[in-house]
Simulated assay, not measured.
Amino acid sequence: MSPMPMLDRRGLWVAAASFVLWGLMPLYWHLLKAVPSLQIVLHRIVWSTLLVVGWLCWKQGAQWWKAAVARPRVAWMLALSGTLIAFNWGLYIWAVNAGHVVETSLGYFINPLLNVVLGVLLLRERLNAAQWIAVAIAAAGVLWLTFNYGSFPWIALALAASFGLYGLIRKVTAVDSVPGLGIESAYLFLPALALLLWSETHGRGGFVADWGLALDALLVFGGVLTALPLIGFAYAVRRVPLSVVGLMQYIAPTLQLLIGVLVFQETFDRDRAIGFVFIWIGLAVFAVDGVWRSRRRVVPVAA
């Protein structure tokens, strides 16, 4: 196994921006609390597809998809990743608007550890001793949260598994980030559009007629907020080792946890605080090790 390569700085910045945006998303979806969760997901799919596919057609022409799926296995792998991310969206939005923001943050605390495991076991990525210590401390925090949560955290585990597998598929699929998202979205577009139209004609929807201009605008702009972090994540995950991306993902659940506790006043007792502290100690160890390694200099030896 080869050691972890030099980190791509642009990939790191893009990953960080994506995770910050994801971390703030509960505030946005809470504004749409009056809209059924399924309707929000369907609108996310439709508007993000129109945005991404429209941009690709403008920049690359109508045949952009042929180049994207020319390699073997790309088409069916993107169909699978699209299904996983749609499931993840639906569960997440329902959980946020049902008052489970803290549990969704637990899911995204678990997810980076799952990415580290996938990176090491399946992609032969290698961690040094300090990074293993960081992972072990963070894992202890996640285990503490899981076993002291008060009930089986099925929402958290389902979110972690679905997004972890999504990241793995996008890591190993040889397709650029934006075309890949375009193909994923295209697979979901027609079923989502058909269900939206059925809902509107059978009294289950309220777009334009009932929800009001403000909510309609939020639903449409939700497509932009859906596409941007996914494009950034897919860009970063192909340029940064999956184990590093996995640990960076703690940015999003930390913000979600703070929003759940400080904004939505959800329960955050002593047991949850202990788990949170363990996770942040692990992150601190990983960050200090990364800074130290980046400052090392190789001094050439004269012949």
Rank of each mutant, 00 (worst) to 15 (best):
T254P: 05
A236D: 00
Y92H: 04
V224Y: 12
A139F: 15
L145N: 14
S105T: 02
Q63D: 13
G90S: 14
M1N: 13
W211I: 08
V14P: 01
E125I: 01
A217D: 06
Y149W: 08
E125P: 06
A252G: 00
I40P: 10
S199W: 15
V224S: 08
A174L: 13
G203L: 04
S151K: 09
W58H: 09
L21W: 14
R239S: 12
L225D: 07
I137V: 14
G141S: 11
L27T: 05
A158P: 00
D271R: 14
E103T: 01
L56Q: 04
P191K: 10
V41S: 03
N115M: 02
Q265K: 11
A174M: 13
L50N: 06
L123S: 03
V175K: 02
V46G: 01
R296F: 12
V117S: 03
L143P: 12
V69H: 07
I40S: 12
L122Y: 10
D216K: 11
K66M: 12
A303I: 07
G246I: 09
W64C: 07
Y149C: 05
G282A: 05
W198Y: 15
A217N: 10
G232H: 00
L258K: 03
A174K: 13
V53Q: 03
N97R: 03
V208H: 07
A192D: 06
L114S: 09
D216F: 09
V69W: 11
G290I: 03
G23M: 10
I40C: 05
V299P: 00
M25W: 01
S18L: 08
L188I: 10
E200M: 12
A160M: 08
R297S: 13
D176V: 01
V220G: 07
P72T: 13
H30D: 07
G141K: 14
V299Q: 01
G61I: 03
R204S: 15
A68N: 00
